[in-house]
Structures are given as C-alpha cells and as structure tokens.
C-alpha cells in the first residue's frame, strides 16, 4: 500500500513537472473546437471579395490560393483540422500539428477580425499554441516522447528530465504581456478617471442583445474634447466602438445592475481590476506571487463571465496550468507527512 502510494505521488509529481505538456494536451481541444466551429464555407468564402480593407498582417502574408479554395477543398481542410487537433493533443508529430493548428487559428480568427470582431478570447491561446510548438517542455507527455524513448531504448519512460525553464517563462511572459497591455490601454484611452467606475458601470448595465432587432446594438464613441483641427472626416470625432455585454440571464443581469449602481463598489472593482492587470509581471517574482496572480485571473474571468457573458475559458485553462501545482502538491504532501509523523508519535507514547 505504501509502495503504491509512493508510486502515485511520484507519478503526480512527474506529471505536474511538465505544465506546458498539460497545456498542450488540453488547449488544442478547447481552441480547436472554436476553430472548427468557425469553419463554415460561407464564412470563409465571403472574405476575399468583400474585406480587402480587413486583412491582418498574417492574412496579408498568405498566398492568394488560401482564399480561393473550392467547397471540396475547404471540406478536406475542415476534416484535416480534426486530425490536427487530435494529434496536437496526444502529441503525435506534436510540434508540426501545433504549428498547423496555430496557423488555422490565425487564419480563421484573422478573417473574423476582418469581418469586424477581433476575438480576444482566442488571441492569447492561439499564440500559446504557436509558442508550444517551438519551446522545450511541451512534448514531455506525448506519444512522440514515448516513441523516442522506445527508439532510443531508454529504460525509464517516467524518469524526470528537467527541461530548460525558458519555454515556460516565454508562455508566462505572453500571459503577463496580455494582461499588462489591457491595463495600459485603460490608462491610455480612458485616463486615470477610468478608475471612477463609470465605464465599468456602463458595461455592466449594457444589454447589447436588446437592441439588436432594431439595428442599434453597436454604439460608436465620439470625442467631444478633440480639437477641431484634428477632425477632418466629420464634426463628431469618432474614436472607438463600444463592446457588448452578452449576459441574458435575468438573475445575473440583476447582480450586474446592483454592482453598477453601487458607486463605491464599482469604483473599487475598477481600481482593483486595473491594478491587477498592471501588476501582471509579478508572476516572475516567485511561485507564490505567480500563483496569487493566476488564481486572481481565473476568479476575474469567472466574475466577468457571470456578469457580462464573456467566458474567456481558454485563458482560464492556461492560467490554471501555469499555477505552480508542484509547489502546492509538495506543500500538501509535506503537511500530510508531518501529521502522519505526529500521529505515529502519539500512538507510540
């Protein structure tokens, strides 16, 4: 029994030692599902003829034939995508398949951006897929690794081989930059007054879907303070479009309204979320700070999901696996062992 427990502890510790592999197993399924869902021929077909103004940097680099596939070719690539998702997840020709899956994401969500909706849910995860294809540590728990172990006749598949830390740090840096820039944008476009809570209050009370039928869902913001010599297109000085609040559950709307109408609470949440985003780089101080930030990030997205119907599921998944679970696991095991020792001493006395 003790031997079995020790083996189990060893196995868990081994698995937790490779967080990038855990992300590689799960993220392709989560993001692949979204990519597959976006792969309709009508969605794809319309792009080339009508959206010449909407090409992203990535789309501009692609040859023309990518946008001129006929229906049968498109369907072939759609089914090929399923194989790519599976192989990325199990790690069979893992790096190659991750690169292809990242390419699919850049292509389809890039088309989505051209249509008008930049999918911020997928921008970080798509980049993480790309990074995983290129960094050490992402293929430790994979079919590729098993095959290499057998081909090279290594004895122990589960022997711990430390991987260079830079791969993990690079993915962590992507996460930190993404949160940091979100905070920076609030200061850049909203100024320090963003912290007074009125912007958050607007978005919590916004019911975008209610205005869709009358064709008034989308608002555009005009800057009344812009000097007239800067306005040459129109007298209104349009600077931004608003974002939507897609939560339609009434009880959750009521909760959002309560927060939005409480001036102190909404200002506190605004200051808190801004500070949280600007302090993203504390993840590099040590594991405790990292865990604290990532757990806060998960809670942050859960609350946004509840109040505004924006889930950021893939972000939560990435944050979950970047938590230092090995530290938490070792701490828990340490406490359990100490309690066990105490119990033995009490019994022997």
């Amino acid at each position: 029994m003790v031997a079995l427990t020790n083996k189990l502890i060893q196995l868990i510790r081994y698995v937790l030692s490779y967080p990038l592999s855990l992300i590689r197993i799960t993220l392709p399924v989560f993001i692949g599902k979204k990519v597959y869902g976006s792969s309709s021929y009508e969605f794809y077909l319309e792009f080339n003829s009508s959206y010449i103004n909407g090409k992203t940097w990535f789309l501009e680099m692609l040859p023309d034939f990518v946008f001129n596939l006929d229906y049968s070719q498109f369907i072939f690539f759609k089914y090929f995508l399923i194989i790519v998702i599976l192989c990325s997840s199990i790690g069979l020709l893992g790096r190659l398949n991750l690169l292809i899956l990242a390419g699919y994401s850049y292509l389809l969500f890039g088309i989505g951006e051209g249509y008008g909706i930049f999918d911020h849910h997928t921008s970080l995860p798509a980049q993480v897929l790309f990074a995983l294809a290129l960094v050490p540590g992402s293929m430790k728990l994979s079919v590729d690794n098993i095959l290499v172990t057998f081909i090279r006749k290594r004895k122990n598949l589960f022997s711990y081989n430390p991987t260079p830390k830079w791969g993990f740090n690079l993915v962590l840096a992507l996460v930190a930059v993404t949160y940091f820039t979100a905070g920076l944008s609030k200061i850049r476009y909203g100024g320090l007054k963003w912290m007074d809570g009125s912007t958050l209050s607007f978005y919590l009370k916004e019911r975008t879907d209610n205005y869709a039928k009358q064709g008034e869902a989308q608002l555009v913001i005009g800057d009344a303070t812009m000097p007239s010599n800067k306005k040459w297109k129109d007298p209104f000085g349009f600077v931004a479009h608003t974002y939507g609040n897609y939560q339609t559950v009434k009880s959750k709307n009521a909760m959002a309204d309560y927060v939005a109408n409480n001036g102190f609470l909404v200002a506190l949440l605004s200051i808190g979320s801004l500070l949280f985003e600007l302090l993203a780089f504390i993840v590099f101080i040590n594991s405790r700070y990292r865990n604290m930030f990532l757990i806060t990030a998960i809670l942050f997205h859960l609350s946004i999901g509840e109040l505004m119907g924006i889930s950021f599921r893939q972000y939560r998944l990435i944050c979950l696996f970047l938590i230092d679970w090995k530290l938490i696991f070792d701490t828990v095991i340490g406490i359990a062992q100490q309690k066990k020792l105490k119990l033995i001493r009490v019994r022997s006395n």
């Binding site: 993404t178 912007t199 608002l219 209104f236 608003t242």
Partner: peptide
C-alpha cells in the same frame, strides 16, 4: 496601441464612458 490578430493592445472596455460621453448609432 494597435491590433492585428492574434496580436493586440487589448483595448477592450478601455475608452472612458460616463453619462456625458457622446454615443452614436450609424
């Protein structure tokens, strides 16, 4: 301060809005 998928300066909810903000429908 620009964006091109998947790279973004994350401008979501950044522009300030209060009761005096000019909002328009096209």
């Amino acid at each position: 301060g620009i964006e091109s998928f998947p790279f973004t300066c994350a401008p979501m909810f950044g522009h300030y809005i209060d009761n005096n903000t000019n909002l328009y429908i096209f």
